[in-house]
Amino acid sequence: MTILPFTLHVADAEIEDLRLRLSRTRFPAASSAAPWELGTDIAYMRDLATYWRESFDWRAQERRLNVFPQFKLQLDELELHFLHVRGPNPQARPLLLCHGWPGSIFEFLDIIPRLTDPERFGGRAEDAFTVIVPSLPGYGLSYQPGQKGFGVEEMADIFARLMQALNHDRYFVQGGDWGGFIASRMAYRYPERVAGLHLNLVPVPRSGKASDQASAEERAHFDRLESWIKDGIGYQWIQGTRPQTLSFGLMDSPVGLGAWIVEKFRAWSDCGGEIETAISRDHLLANISLYWFTGAIGSSFYPYYARMHRPWPVPLDEKITVPMAYAEFPMEMVRPPRSLAEVMFSDIRRWTVMPRGGHFAALEQPELLAADIQAFAREIDLG
């Protein structure tokens, strides 16, 4: 398995093409509905598109990413992109961070230094990690046109091979969104390698109703779940059943791509309806631009297609025995109570209810998430 250094550099011509396409956008007509009621607000998207075209500095975002050591690993037909960041402590423990959709490696740029060099932020040297952050196969810099699709199961196996190639025999895994599914699948498949599993999204099955014996917490969970299924998962049905049809529009229109992603960042973050109070405009556009420049939006839908056409990634009659911790952020869409998580996870060591934050925890609240990962890892012996 060949590992080669990598530096991100998008050609000037591609940046100019993006600006030209933005200048030629045909926006939909305004409706009489309240802003955001029918989806992405037109006025907001017009303003964001103008900023994207005239003021956004992609080169600055490249520099933010290129500060960290990046590599590509050839695995069969896949070129897997990843960051491998070591801190000053030679005893640092390996930690794999897994992103999801519509996120990317850009989510982790603020949390990585807190994890690799905690002393710099007033923490303890012994809490340091060596951090490995792959781009999900089929996402961003782990995508090449024509490659096959990858579901959660394949991604978990690929990440286990990555850690083996880096000579990390025992390690921690952390994830939210698809990253939570992938990390949980890794803990199920490779319990001898995964020393600890930290999640900010617990991948319990999302069906059923509260039983007559359900607790108040369980009833509240099923009420939230019913509301979300009714009004919040249309994107999953489209991406999970007709992903290629949708990808035509999003591959051709940067504003179409941006509107599809922005709506999720607003709905799923702890922003009170004002997205940029939680996630800066530049951070938002760095993430969207990475999808645009890599052309990976269509392939990023494949895990949804696989999820809808396969069994649950962890067999429902089995349990994950690896020590697990969960950080519950208040604006996460699905927040099952501990009693339901215990059906799948047999060794829950830590369950932290956070005061603020949403679905994009590493991006929204890097300090809170880093501290919780560190506290959990102190309890685990890598062996």
Rank of each mutant, 00 (worst) to 15 (best):
M1H: 09
I3N: 08
F6C: 14
D17S: 15
D17K: 14
L20I: 03
T25K: 07
W36T: 04
Y44H: 09
R46C: 04
R46E: 11
R53G: 01
E54R: 08
L65W: 15
Q74V: 10
L75C: 04
H84Q: 12
N89F: 11
A92F: 09
L95T: 05
H99D: 07
W101G: 10
F106R: 15
G122F: 02
G123N: 07
V131D: 06
L141C: 11
P145F: 06
G149Q: 09
E153T: 10
E154M: 09
E154T: 15
A165E: 06
H168A: 00
W178G: 03
W178F: 15
I182C: 11
R185V: 02
M186E: 00
P191R: 06
R193W: 05
N200A: 05
V204M: 01
S207I: 05
K209S: 09
A210T: 04
Q213L: 11
L225A: 11
W228Q: 13
K230R: 15
I233K: 14
G234N: 15
Y235S: 11
Y235H: 14
I238R: 14
P254H: 11
V255E: 02
R266T: 00
A267M: 03
G273C: 02
D282V: 00
L285E: 05
I288K: 06
Y291K: 10
G295Q: 04
M308H: 12
W312Q: 12
D317W: 08
V322I: 08
P336M: 07
L340Y: 03
R350Y: 00
W351N: 01
H359P: 03
A375L: 12
E379P: 05
